[in-house]
Design a protein around this nucleic acid. Structure first.
Lengths: 230, 230
DNA sequence: GTCAAGAAGATTGTCGACAAACGACAAATC
DNA sequence: GATTTGTCGTTTGTCGACAATCTTCTTGAC
């Protein structure tokens, strides 16, 4: 079937996915801001394809919480509010404490090398520069690993579903920790507890870790008095 | 064309939603079985519309876990397996114990009348007949109320996302409790604990309740040796 | 008789076009 | 002057058609 030059899109394997990824990247890079309308025909023209795949990609984004759909009105980038972020972090606390418990009890040795490597990566990035989204992504990847190795596929699925929304929130907020080094360090106690095979301690550590982040987030909104509603 | 007789819905407000609902009902009524392929053009013809809204409706079902999409292959009703159900129940335990804690602590008086009414409804149904899906739906509605009054919108959203999948699983399994009356009764301790404003007890009660259901489900699969994979 | 290659049919992927709905602004009415 | 009504441009909603892909069936070689 002649895969000739290779990087020509060809429709093979997921045009919709590619469109979705492009849109996610654009939103997460700040090119499209919360509240912005996403006009199908405009996007289609920009990417040089028809509206159909764009529409499907947007529906995909909707299910990952980045985008909101209103009948006969179209798609809008979701707004970020105190309550939406607060609720989100509460859900993450549930999810990740449970995930880390299972991981510690049944899968610690497999997971530890990857977790350690990810923390190292975060330290490396911290020393490197101040690409906000890079730091945030590395952090989220750490948390994703915990869900990945929890042994419950649904935990991972749920995490992936809310990950992008978390990233968007953090992007809107801007820098959460004064020093990115600090963010990297706060993961150490978590890894340590897993190393000790102490599930309770691990759960407590990650609970604390997420709760601190949540407080910083809510504090940020409170400071700015910017409760963008819904 | 000619939409003649007035009560034809007109396209106003959600054709896609209506298609989705029809499909969900068909699946949950057993008309379409797990593993079945959902051919867009067939459905479109049956409902007398084009493929586009059908496709969107299927994408919607996908995000509620009832249906699975494979690139270039189309949509299939998801299979139900031991692990998928087991994982699902574990997630529900997390979600609902947390939800009931919040409800008991901050919202008990608002929620109690509705919860009591729902339990009454379950008892009524139990005395009535043996419409399996009716029993299951009433049960799920009770659990939905708990998430609804938890104060965390995301809890409700997550519950709604997994509710249909749970229903499908229970449908596949068939009767879980020998006597539907028994199922209704197992909710009483939960309501009681909420009435006492005892969050720990309420959480324990619902944890036990769901865990029992989970055990019955896994037991069922074990008996039948029917671990439909993936 | 079994297996592989190829042809034919069915189904999804994408497109462009048209109809319906929405939002904004202008005009008319009170 | 304020509110309502009408009109127009933009955007979404739905459609039917065609191309790409997958599936099944046939055909042929061993």
């Amino acid at each position: 079937m002649a895969e000739h030059s290779g990087f020509v899109p060809l429709n093979r394997d997921g045009l919709v996915d590619r469109v979705a990824k492009t849109l996610v990247d654009a939103i997460l890079a700040g090119g499209i801001a919360p509240g912005d309308r996403l006009v199908e025909s405009t996007i289609a023209k920009q990417m040089d394809l028809s509206r159909a795949p764009v529409r499907e990609a947007l529906r995909l984004l909707e299910s990952s919480g980045l985008v909101e759909y209103r009948t006969n009105r179209g798609f809008f980038v979701k707004l970020v509010s105190v309550t939406s972020m607060s609720d989100l972090y509460d859900l993450r606390i549930l999810l990740e404490t449970a995930a880390i418990r299972r991981l510690t009890e049944t899968n610690a040795e497999t997971a530890l090398p990857e977790l350690r490597a990810q923390v190292a990566e975060m330290h490396r990035l911290a020393g490197e520069g101040d690409d906000l989204m890079a730091h945030v992504s590395a952090d989220m990847q750490f948390h994703r690993l915990i869900c990945l190795h929890s042994g419950n596929q649904r935990f991972l699925q749920l995490f992936d579903q809310i990950a992008n929304e978390t990233k968007l929130g953090l992007l809107v907020i801007g820098r959460l920790y004064d020093d990115p080094r600090h963010m990297a360090e706060t993961h150490d106690p978590i890894v340590e507890a897993i190393g000790l095979h102490d599930a309770n301690r691990a759960a407590g550590a990650i609970d604390y870790h997420i709760r601190v982040a949540k407080d910083l987030v809510t504090q940020h909104f409170h400071d700015q008095q910017e409760g963008t509603p819904q």
